[in-house]
């Protein structure tokens, strides 16, 4: 049996809102040691999502036997919208479940709401992702990266990222013209999450589809910072830290035709 209680429903709500536009169906793998893990790839096979909600993200977590919950995220999202952000949220499943029980408890009122979501058998490829060495890594405020991704998409369907040891440059060239944004590393002592940190083994220039970057920044509400790891001619990793766990996106780059 699985029983996981979140202190606030908002965490799972934000996670599902971050991924449901990229992948519609996915398997939630549940185990006592790893909590909940998900690996899912979008239909175009360009963006991969790797989610880990450790048991530490839950107020209470027990999973007697490893379970796979096949979920339609659009449906789960509809059910999660029934509860308030501050409610306790408990998810419950039997050992061979055909449905997931979702329970919201209002902390002030005596109100408990229960929903049952039908589960599905989902056949999905699992990809092997080794811990890669990266050429460079940038950590920056998540909202700032989101603004760049959204703004630059209005100029071009591609966004070029150029990292050197003393700057990161975002470059867009489109039909109406072009634009670039240059950020320099700095440390904000009072608000560390406002800092921009660049770690560099070697400079990297990569181009990504603006559409996919805009899917990724839907996770902005999850974390105050985002870490972007880039390697020449390889998929990029965008990581949003959870209180205990992470949401990672792997995005394949665009290459010269």
């Amino acid at each position: 049996m699985l029983e996981g209680k979140f202190e606030e429903a908002s965490l799972l709500k934000k996670v599902i809102e971050s991924i449901k536009d990229s992948v519609k169906l996915c398997n939630f793998n549940c185990s006592q040691s790893k909590g909940i893990t998900v690996q899912a790839i979008d239909d175009s096979r360009v963006l991969l999502i790797a989610l880990k909600i450790d048991s530490g993200s839950f107020q209470e977590f027990r999973c007697d036997r490893d379970l796979v919950l096949g979920l339609d995220l659009e449906s789960l999202s509809k059910i999660l919208k029934q509860g308030n952000n501050e409610d306790y949220l408990t998810i419950i499943a039997e050992d061979s479940p055909d449905s997931l029980l979702v329970v919201f408890e209002d902390k002030k009122k005596d109100r408990i709401s229960e929903f049952s979501l039908k589960l599905m058998d989902i056949d999905s490829d699992v990809l092997t992702i080794d811990d890669m060495e990266h050429d460079c890594s940038i950590t920056m405020p998540a909202y700032e990266f989101a603004k760049i991704a959204r703004d630059m998409k209005t100029l071009s369907e591609s966004l070029q990222i150029i990292i050197t040891k003393d700057s990161v440059k975002f470059n867009a060239e489109g039909q109406i013209g072009s634009g670039s944004i240059i950020l320099k590393p700095h440390t904000d002592m009072e608000k560390p999450d406002e800092s921009i940190k660049i770690e560099l083994n070697q400079p990297v220039v990569l181009t990504f589809g603006a559409k996919y970057l805009n899917d990724i920044v839907k996770a902005t509400a999850l974390s105050s910072t985002v870490t972007i790891k880039l390697t020449d001619k390889a998929p990029a990793l965008f990581e949003y830290r959870l209180p205990s766990g992470y949401l990672r996106y792997y995005l394949a780059p665009k290459f010269d035709d």
């Binding site: 963006l47 991969l48 490829d125 665009k254």
Partner: peptide, 14 residues
């Protein structure tokens, strides 16, 4: 022009 590549060319199936 730049061409979008698939993740499958980088990651193998388990």
């Amino acid at each position: 022009t730049k061409k979008q590549v698939s993740l499958m060319s980088f990651f193998g199936k388990k």
